[in-house]
Each structure stands twice: as C-alpha cells, then as structure tokens.
Amino acid sequence: MISRVVASFGLAAGLTRAGTAVLRAGAPGGRGRWERTNHAGRAVGLYSGPATAVAAAVGAGRLHPAAGMVVLAAGACGAYDDIAGAGDPRRGFRAHLGALRGGEVTSGAVKLFGISAAALAAGAFLERRPLDRLLAGVVIAGAAHAVNLLDVRPGRAAATALALAAPGLLRGGPGAEQAAVVTGAAAAALPDDLAERTMLGDTGAHALGAALGVAAVACNGRLGLLAHAVAVVGAAVYGDRVSDLARSL
C-alpha cells in the first residue's frame, strides 16, 4: 500500500515539474500569452497551471477514469477562464450569475456550470447510491471552486491543497492514493509559486481542488460526504467575502 501511495505522489510530482519546465522553455504562442501580473505588479508565468492539471488528471485517472476526467475538465474550464476572462474584474458567483441574468455569458459562468456538470457526472460513476452520487458531485465541484478562491497570493492554493490532503494519506486504500496525487502535484508546484516564478491560475487551482474533492469522496462514507458538502457549499455561499478577505491579508 505504501509503495502505491509513493508511486502516486512521485508520478504527480514528476509530471508537474516536467510539464512546467517544458512549457516555460517553449511558451507556445509566445511568452506574452502566458504571463499575468500578480498582486505585487510582477509578471508571473502560468506555466505550472496546465502542468499541474495534467499531472493531477493522469494520477487520478490511474485510480479511476471518472476521477481523471473530472480533474481534467476542471482544469480545462479554468484554462478557458484564464484565457477568455483575462482582464475581467468580476469575481465570485454573484457577479457572474448577475451578468448571466442580464443576458451576458461570462467565462466565469461557463466555468461554474462546466465544472459543476463534470463533477455531477463523475459522482455518478464514483458512487453507487443516488444520494451519494449527488453528494460526491457537490463535494468535487465545491472543492474545485473553494481552492480557486484562495489563489489570490503566492502559494496559498497549493499550500491549502497540501494541508487538506494530508489527513487522507493516513486513511489507506484508494483515498490515500488520491490524496497522494494531490500532495505530489501541489508540492511540486509550490516552490515556484511561492517564489513568484509561476502561478497556478484558474487552470491549476481548479484542477487541484477537483482532485482534492475526488480524494475526499474516496476517503469518506455518506456522513463524511455530507459534512464535506456542507463545508464546500458554505465556502461557496460566502465565496465573495472569503476572496475579498484573502486579497486583503
């Protein structure tokens, strides 16, 4: 069992580091496409976002195809927002849903509904009972959005994913292996993120969050799923406030 956990960690960490290096060296489409200005006004590359998303998806997919699918879908939706939503000051569910009521489909709305649909589909494959399937979908989607809410300062999203995945490593079974995937990808991305050389962006943060949600589903029964669902729904309800607070600290 320990060897499988170590293998999952090593695969996710190795793919994240290798993918980041390849993207940084090649910068497909030009470096301008990959650079964003962070909170301190520094130009930071988005290279670790796709690398982390692919690494987490591959690692999760080795354990269950639906897990890999939802992590990749979350990363893809985040990538769409990184590209199409660049420069859009609107953040949070209320802003994007308000725009949708006014007839404007923002990249944030596409991301919200895309990740939610993928999470519910994954829940249908990961669990057997209807209620458990619904709860699993809520946990995965909520975790994806919750981790992204914290991606407002260097290292916060990756460090949060590391901290929240740590208990899962002690559970054993598929849950520990899924937690190792999150831990490996986040640990590999964290040093460059903290040094402000790269950033996860929505691509990496949503993928890490979805992988964290998958690990929570694998580690818990119905009561645990319910507790996690309540927690992530609470984070979503107060998402705008939490994001604003995180930006101010």
Rank of each mutant, 00 (worst) to 15 (best):
L23A: 09
G75N: 01
G29W: 09
M69I: 07
A18P: 08
G19Q: 12
L100F: 15
A56L: 06
G108S: 11
L149W: 07
G108W: 04
D82L: 02
A144L: 02
T106Y: 12
D88P: 10
D81F: 02
V105M: 12
A43L: 00
A53H: 10
G142K: 01
A121P: 02
A12N: 05
R94T: 15
T16E: 12
D88S: 08
A121G: 07
F93H: 12
G68T: 03
A143S: 15
R31T: 10
G45V: 00
I83A: 12
A95W: 08
A118L: 03
A66S: 05
R24S: 13
H145A: 15
A60F: 00
V70N: 00
L72A: 07
A143P: 01
L150E: 06
D132V: 01
A118Q: 00
A118T: 01
A27C: 11
H96N: 11
G49D: 11
L63P: 01
V44C: 06
L150W: 08
Y47F: 15
H96Q: 12
L131K: 02
G49S: 05
L72S: 05
V110F: 10
Y47D: 10
A67Q: 04
V54I: 13
G75K: 00
A13Y: 06
G137P: 06
L150H: 07
G87S: 04
H39T: 14
R128D: 13
V54K: 08
L23N: 11
G78M: 11
R17N: 03
L120R: 00
H64I: 09
A43W: 10
S107P: 04
Y80L: 11
G142Y: 07
H145V: 14
L112V: 11
R128Q: 11
R62E: 02
V70G: 00
A121L: 14
L97A: 14
G30D: 10
V147S: 05
R90K: 13
G92A: 12
A144K: 00
G41L: 08
A12H: 01
L63D: 01
L150F: 14
A7D: 07
R153E: 13
G30L: 03
T20I: 02
G102V: 00
V147P: 03
S48I: 11
A60L: 08
R153V: 01
H39F: 15
L23Q: 14
V152R: 08
L150C: 11
G45C: 12
P65H: 03
W34E: 08
A18M: 11
A124H: 00
G61F: 03
G103D: 12
R33N: 10
